[in-house]
Write a protein that binds this DNA or RNA. Structure first.
Lengths: 236, 236
DNA sequence: TCTCATAATATGTGCATACATAAAAAAAGC
DNA sequence: GCTTTTTTTATGTATGCACATATTATGAGA
């Protein structure tokens, strides 16, 4: 979504806002075609380029659906989209004025479980680097991290001293752009995790799972469980 | 993010992709200014408009930060953004080929708790409509919903038969565009909720809280807790 | 030195125009 | 009737130009 909240009096934003008003007021009915760009340009007394910009913005926001020659339709269910910013843990902690720390619990080159290999589309028997770590906030447990790394995608990771730099930061710095999948869930703390986190066994932990790929190779699968009470907010 | 995955050979997308490559390759260093539009236009042999479009896209994706006269900088931490689609429960259930149902548990016009009124920026003593409901999936508990509605923002809601249409759907249909705040968390099931959901008391429930405003008036605060095991996925 | 007005500058936007492209509609061929 | 080709059409993109706007940089005046 854009920055503007108040309707703009002029420019393409005004046309965008007027379009949104018509969608809301059902003057442009859900699922129906709206007038084409040239027609709207004539109506608003502006260039087609300007109408295009406005309608494109509404399409990006999920209110309209546009197809060449097919015209522009009002989306049936204005599916609400929220863009949430995935926090970089160190930064999130320091932004709150707290002291960040990270404790490496274990680091092993293990044959990965079959279910994991299947999900990563890797050959059975492939060895992955398994790293467990605890992120601290003012010395208190903040996030428990369970990470699998694929050395065949990022061989350098085997040389990195993960006591010095967290796997996450190293990846952000050295494997710049990856695509992937983010899964949010709530899981109960296992006895082991509870002991590390200093919370009750079975406590509800907000959990973020990230699977990232570089080109066609899986890079890492990381599961981060936040201490009880954590809330992730965003504006919609 | 846009739809394109593969680099485009021509057009503004090609410039966008080349810019992204330079950011990744640190040819444009984090935090540093990049050449201004006119310069890049000369380099790529295209109009400034085209460069503008490309850089604007990169800025919207969170890689660049632009300011008039100030120029364009590479964002220091390319904070990863994920756009997640807030599911409309009925639709989500039906899309999975399951039967949707909704059971109204209670509906009362109550004086709201002070903490809530403060959060909604309402006068102490204001009465709000408090609705508890259970969304069913093939007859099984799926989502527990606790909702507060503000009749002074949407008076018509008092006349609506919530047995017939869920508050959510009525709002989507009749109070089309609202801005608000989305908060994700994990909470343990209270004994009452556990009984309704048919899960263990204390079970970890993925919880989505949505606070929406229409103009300056709060419309609704809804807390939806999903049955254990629910996962919300998105691509990043 | 400090404050305030002024100029310089990079991005933001609008317009007229042209052509590209995808997809639907119409026409042609069988 | 059916398939294939052609035309039509709405959106997508590019360009050159002009002017708006927000800030930074500069310089004048006290």
């Amino acid at each position: 979504m854009c920055s503007e909240q108040r309707p703009a009096a002029f420019g393409w934003q005004a046309i965008r806002d007027e379009g949104l008003r018509r969608i809301r007021a059902r003057e442009w009915a859900p699922g129906a075609l709206i007038p084409h760009e040239a027609e709207l340009a004539a109506e608003f007394g502006c260039a087609r380029t300007t109408v295009n910009r406005a309608l494109r913005a509404l399409a990006e926001s999920g209110f309209l659906e546009r197809r060449r020659k097919g015209g522009t339709r009002v989306v049936l269910t204005p599916l609400r989209k929220a863009t949430l910013q995935i926090p970089i843990i160190r930064q999130e902690v320091e932004d709150h004025g707290a002291r960040y720390g990270c404790r490496l619990i274990s680091r092993n080159l293990d044959p990965a479980p079959d279910a994991l290999l299947q999900r990563l589309d890797l050959q059975p028997g492939t060895e992955l680097l398994h790293v467990l770590a605890l992120h601290l906030r003012d010395g208190q447990p903040h996030v428990y991290e369970d990470r699998w790394l694929n050395p065949s995608a990022v061989p350098e990771i085997l040389e990195v001293d993960l006591e010095q730099i967290s796997a996450n930061e190293w990846l952000v710095r050295n494997v710049p752009y990856t695509e992937g999948e983010l899964t949010l869930s709530a899981v109960g703390a296992t006895p082991e995790v509870a002991a590390l986190m200093g919370c009750a066994s079975g406590a509800a932990l907000f959990t973020m799972e990230r699977l990232t790929w570089k080109a066609e190779a899986p890079v890492t699968l990381v599961t981060q469980s936040y201490a009880p009470g954590y809330r992730l907010s965003t504006s919609i």
